[in-house]
Design a protein around this nucleic acid. Structure first.
Length: 270
DNA sequence: AGATAATGTACAT
DNA sequence: TGTACCTTATCTT
């Protein structure tokens, strides 16, 4: 379930369960075996997350950069499996196991290489101190539509297909609005909303975006949970009635992903 | 701007 | 058995 909140939650979990102790590192699936051998016995001494990149720091050995891609997953349940790219076992008595499966990237890098990743990413709503005006400087100069810009990690880091659809809906913004037509106050509001939504996402380990007054219970509808466990307005709800106005939610491919929106709550610009 | 490849799982047919 | 997927790097137009 990889959007930015997942990665920041993983960083917290790794810090809590594994950091500060020597780890046993292995690669049952094999692809990371050489690097795992270098890490084996090192102390995990730092974690970091920026957008959808997770960094695990090992004393004297550098950083492991992990990107989950579309299908990567991390579990802490210790189930034996031969599809595990990287297994870390640690904690005070070696009782915690982190298993990484199917990542798009898992590589051992240096400090400067880590910095180069930060340099090519935009501000992240989950990194306190990141400046939303850096994103706005690019958005306000672009003719590309907002739905594409919100997913561009050079513009804004951490937002994926769910948060882009939901933040556009929550602000009544047409996904096809060109970036240059977005006003500064509206961008400030969308950023502030992303900070709130994504922090809740880290806390709950899932994406919930529906305001209490639109919860199915409050609307007299039966309770509903979407496929990924959270409550959302439009993501993957194509053809279903909008939770606010009842209009059918629409879908269309945009920037290689399925976009979802409500044509009456998010009316077309001009 | 679009098409494709890569990786693992879950759910539909 | 097929297909969708909370992604993106790398190709071709």
């Amino acid at each position: 379930m990889p959007e930015g909140h997942t990665i920041h939650r993983l960083a917290e979990d790794c810090l809590r369960l594994l950091a500060g102790w020597q780890v046993r590192a292995s690669s049952p699936q094999g692809k990371f075996a050489d690097s795992a051998a270098l890490l084996d016995g090192a102390v995990l001494d730092g974690v970091d997350a920026h957008g959808k990149h997770l960094f695990l720091g090992f004393e004297g050995a550098g950083w492991v950069r992990v990107h989950l891609g579309l299908i990567g997953k991390v579990t802490f349940d210790g189930q034996v499996s031969d599809t595990v790219r990287l297994r870390l076992r640690g904690g005070p008595h070696g009782e915690h196991t982190m298993d990484l499966r199917g990542p798009a990237a898992c590589e051992l890098i240096t400090g400067p290489e880590k910095q180069a990743v930060h340099d090519r990413l935009g501000p992240d709503p989950l990194r306190s101190g990141d400046d939303p005006r850096r994103a706005y400087a690019r958005i306000s100069r672009s003719r590309v539509c907002l739905a594409a810009l919100l997913m561009d990690q050079k513009v804004l880091a951490g937002v994926g297909n769910v948060y882009r659809a939901e933040v556009l809906f929550r602000h009544g913004v047409d996904p096809y609005l060109p970036g240059r037509a977005l006003t500064a106050p509206l961008w400030e509001a969308m950023w502030a909303d992303l900070v709130t939504l994504m922090r809740a996402g880290v806390r709950d380990n899932r994406i919930d975006t529906v305001r209490p007054e639109h919860e199915p219970a409050a609307m007299g509808r039966p309770p509903r949970r979407d496929d990924h466990g959270g409550e959302v307005y439009v993501y993957r709800r194509a053809g279903l009635p909008c939770l606010v106005c009842g209009t059918e939610v629409r879908t269309a491919p945009l920037a290689a992903r399925n976009l979802f929106w409500c044509p009456s709550c998010q009316p077309p610009h001009i």
